[in-house]
Design a protein around this nucleic acid. Structure first.
Lengths: 186, 186
DNA sequence: CTGTATCTTGAGTGGTGCCTCAAGATCGAC
DNA sequence: GTCGATCTTGAGGCACCACTCAAGATACAG
């Protein structure tokens, strides 16, 4: 099934405006933002949003994987450009903290808050895999303590994720997380 | 104003049952639990709850400071019984993680989610002060890096707090936090 | 231009939870 | 036992949000 039956022009336009509005609002407020707000921003009724996308997850999958993919790809490139494993791992953790702090949508994505957004989930798996690769590489080179596992890296990223979501975060929690990694070098 | 006008017997009984219900439900579900549920558990209408306590914060202050105080006092005693500063600090962090994981009410309390519950707030200040004392003592003895400040300790406790609240926590995040402390010894 | 398949609309339903207040029930001093 | 002060009740108002569907509007093939 290559392409589905084409939409009527008005429907197509509305879908485009919904996507644009959803992108903006999701990035600003997270993937849990009220859909009524998205519809309003698109100048369209809430019914239209549901007609076109059916579920929140479908709308998420229609707009977020692109951005998330781009950002994660950029992070991946940045990470892999570092000369040493240690620098790569540090850049990875630092970048994941940064990414999740910068906008709520990436945060929700990385925390997998909407596991039914299948496309998005797939994108996120890549960066998880990159992290795990780095841990294995570091182990192979003997620079990272064997006590520090792939799960530990994921826990680090997860902690950063939930922390960046909190409104009343104390100063310097990022340092706490980076210190936990720092403690794991041999 | 030593004692306010005594309540009618029925009112006093209802207040007692509300307190009992509130204690149980707050401990189980956190300080944000629906008050309708508390009223129902007390076999009383929601109106009665509001008549007696007026606000959620007043109800919290009527039941939680006791428990919180007892637990924090126990933790304090346990901590101070340790022979070295290092052990004391470790016990403190470990204990605070434990406390916050065990029940949601202590978690909300320590995270200061209801800053208008004045009595509870006061109780919590004690444990914050204890933590800060330990950090200063450790600095004085030179066993803790000066880079690790009182704020860092609070960040540690705060991280543990928000993490223990999350439903889909990855295994071993506690270890991450304890490692961040471990990295700070000189 | 017309007819119909497609699309949009938005009030409505339902769920959660906070908080109020007029009407009625109960206590207990006298 | 009476009666007023005290207390309880719970429906109802509010705000928020998800999701639906019958009625009406629109695009576009012919």
């Amino acid at each position: 099934m290559p392409d589905t039956k084409p939409l009527r022009r008005d429907a197509r336009d509305n879908a485009a405006r919904l996507r644009a509005a959803a992108l903006e609002i999701f990035l600003a407020k997270g993937l849990g933002a009220p859909l009524e707000e998205v519809a309003r921003a698109a100048g369209v009724s809430i019914g239209t949003l549901y007609n076109r996308f059916g579920t929140r997850e479908a709308l998420i999958d229609a707009v977020i994987p692109d951005v998330a993919g781009a950002r994660l790809k950029a992070l991946g490139a940045d990470v892999l450009a570092r000369p040493t494993v240690r620098e790569r791992l540090e850049a990875f953790v630092h970048g994941m903290i940064e990414l999740q702090s910068r906008d709520p949508a990436l945060n929700d994505a990385i925390l997998r808050r909407y596991p039914d957004a299948v496309a998005l989930l797939g994108i996120c798996e890549h960066s998880t895999a990159l992290g795990n690769d780095l841990v294995r590489e570091a182990h192979r080179e003997g620079v990272l303590s064997p006590d520090f596992t792939e799960d530990d890296l994921q826990a680090l990223v997860w902690l950063a994720g939930i922390a960046s979501r909190e409104p009343h975060a104390p100063k310097g929690w990022q340092q706490t997380i980076e210190r936990a990694l720092a403690a794991a070098w041999t």
